[in-house]
């Protein structure tokens, strides 16, 4: 069980580090600028905020995972009696920030009636799912590279930016060269989320949506297991 005291410790430490300011400010400003004009399509707008959340959460996760020097981290692991709890607490803090940002991205255009039509319940469900999955991908990516490149922040940033770029361009690359379809399998399947954000007159979800959702769930579970194992082994 994650101790509330540890969550508080991480939250205070993250806020006092001030490293939250650039990603949060950028995301907030981006949402306001993006929705300057009203009458915009619903799902394609939300697809853009999903990608923004993916990028920003990678940034947030990397900052949260670089909060402590090795000595402080060693002490926390002993105090918490578990490396897993240390990791879960970090992820919890990332999810709190993801929740606030994701909710803002979803609620802001609805509050100011920016879309050209009313949102359907099904669309809202897909939008929440899309933002949740994008945030999880960002958190996984940020934490994964912070862990495996813990001694070199520069390479952690370079590696995660490379993965983000490839995962976003993955669909296009695979269309041109089908061999890449398999090579791109380990990259976060973000395109399999946003591909369903289409502004059709009659929005519906078909079998391919559920197949993609299943693969995404399997991918997330495997990625979490791999990250936990790597963290335990790396320390």
């Amino acid at each position: 069980m994650i101790m509330p005291g540890y969550i508080k410790y991480q939250l205070i430490s993250y806020i006092r580090s001030l490293t939250f300011i650039p990603p949060i400010t950028l995301f907030g400003a981006w949402i306001i600028i993006f929705y300057t004009y009203s009458g915009v399509p619903i799902l394609s707008s939300y697809a853009v905020t999903c990608i923004s959340l993916y990028l920003i959460m990678t940034w947030v996760a990397m900052s949260v995972f670089s909060l402590e020097e090795n000595g402080e981290k060693d002490l926390l692991i002993v105090q918490l009696k578990s490396k897993r709890l240390y990791l879960y607490g970090k992820w919890f803090v990332c999810f709190l920030f993801a929740f606030v940002m994701g909710m803002s991205a979803i609620v802001y255009p609805l509050t100011f009636s920016i879309f050209k039509e009313d949102i359907q319940m099904l669309q809202l469900g897909v939008v929440i799912y899309g933002h949740l999955v994008s945030a999880i991908f960002g958190i996984l990516l940020g934490s994964f590279f912070s862990i495996i490149k813990k001694d070199s922040k520069r390479f952690a940033w370079l590696s995660s930016m490379f993965v983000i770029a490839v995962s976003l361009a993955g669909e296009g690359i695979a269309e041109k060269l089908s061999i890449f379809k398999w090579i791109l399998l380990p990259f976060p399947p973000i395109t399999q989320v946003i591909i369903h954000f289409t502004d059709d007159a009659l929005y519906g979800i078909a079998m391919d949506f559920w197949m993609d959702a299943m693969w995404i769930v399997v991918y997330i579970i495997l990625a979490f297991i791999l990250t936990i194992r790597l963290f335990i082994k790396k320390e």
Partner: peptide, 15 residues
């Protein structure tokens, strides 16, 4: 339940 005292207390703790 292990108590651990490091040789050098970590730097940069924000409390």
């Amino acid at each position: 339940k292990i108590g651990y005292v490091p040789e050098h207390f970590p730097e940069g703790i924000r409390f």
